[in-house]
């Protein structure tokens, strides 16, 4: 049905898979720490970084743009943290404010760039909505290197991140540098998002952080299994989305990937053993019946 012999599709599918894996892994921690929407803020906040990186270096090399995005995204999360810490503004307001203001500034820079006489500025727009179909071999190489580093860091700091996600107070009392670990984990999330922006765009990147992790959460109570499942769901959404959108005309890749990921979430919500809605309904029926039987004697 899908022609994976096609070179472009292979590149796109590989890129989407890498993207799904990294955002699935890092997203698991974000979802568990109730920071699902941090991804949304980071991806919006990254825009001025992309524009500035281009303005300063006149380079469109994926590494430069991704670094710019990561830096701005990181600055955005830092702003959210310090606003919440230093004023009575709550997390949700700080997130909404930072993402929209950073994005606005990015828009200003972007329109400024578009007026420059230089012709090689095309392609920056793809950061808004993403253009997975335009992914090149070198983009995928960049994604692979940065994504692997991020996942590797999670493996190295596994114990620390686990503790941080479930009991930060205990982690602090054990003498772990909690603040530093939090910054590290956020930085990794920023990297995971930055590499995906070009493929699925600012608006939909946040979905790839939340959806695979939220789906994986339903199947298990163990962090290790959840992270692996989230990576698998992310990869499956990426590859399936890329393949479907390439075989149907006028079907943009980013939204298709999100659609696939949402289907996985819906299936997980419904059919996951134990927590799932079906399982819960059956359990409830059964206990109702037993209760009635016992009541009737």
């Amino acid at each position: 049905m899908f022609d994976f012999g096609d070179y472009t599709l292979r590149v796109v599918a590989a890129g989407s898979a890498i993207l799904g894996i990294t955002s699935g892994v890092l997203g698991s921690f974000a979802v568990l720490r109730k920071q699902s929407l941090l991804g949304d803020a980071i991806s919006h906040a990254a825009l001025p970084g992309v524009a500035l990186a281009y303005l300063l270096t006149s380079s469109k090399s994926p590494l430069v743009l991704v670094l710019g995005a990561a830096l701005a995204g990181w600055l955005g999360t830092l702003s959210v943290r310090s606003i919440v810490k230093r004023s009575r503004i709550k997390q949700d307001t700080a997130l909404g404010l930072v993402m929209s203001v950073f994005f606005g500034v990015g828009l200003v820079l972007l329109t400024y760039i578009q007026r420059l006489p230089d012709a090689s500025k095309a392609g920056l727009n793809t950061f808004l909505f993403g253009q997975a179909a335009a992914m090149l071999g070198r983009d995928v190489a960049t994604m692979f290197v940065l994504g692997s580093l991020a996942v590797l860091a999670v493996v190295v700091f596994w114990k620390e991140f686990k503790l941080l996600s479930f009991d930060p107070a205990f982690a602090a009392s054990m003498g772990f540098p909690v603040q530093l670990l939090e910054v590290l984990l956020t930085t990794l999330l920023v990297v995971a998002i930055a590499i995906g922006l070009q493929a699925v765009g600012v608006v939909l990147m946040s979905a790839l952080v939340v959806a695979p992790a939220a789906a994986a959460r339903q199947w298990t109570d163990r962090l290790g299994i959840m992270v692996i499942l989230a990576a698998a769901f992310g990869a499956a959404s990426g590859v399936t989305g890329a393949a479907v959108s390439s075989s149907v005309e006028h079907l943009p890749t980013g939204p298709t990937i999100v659609l696939v990921a949402s289907v996985i979430v819906a299936l997980s919500f419904a059919f996951a053993p134990g927590r799932g809605l079906v399982a819960r309904t059956i359990l409830q029926r059964r206990s109702n019946r037993r209760f009635r039987l016992e009541a009737e004697g």
Binding site: A207, V210, A211, A214, S262
Partner: peptide, 16 residues
């Protein structure tokens, strides 16, 4: 099954 922020993060990208 999920916290409220995740519920927002799941819903609006899908509709969008």
């Amino acid at each position: 099954l999920v916290a409220e922020d995740a519920a927002i993060g799941l819903t609006f990208p899908l509709l969008f």
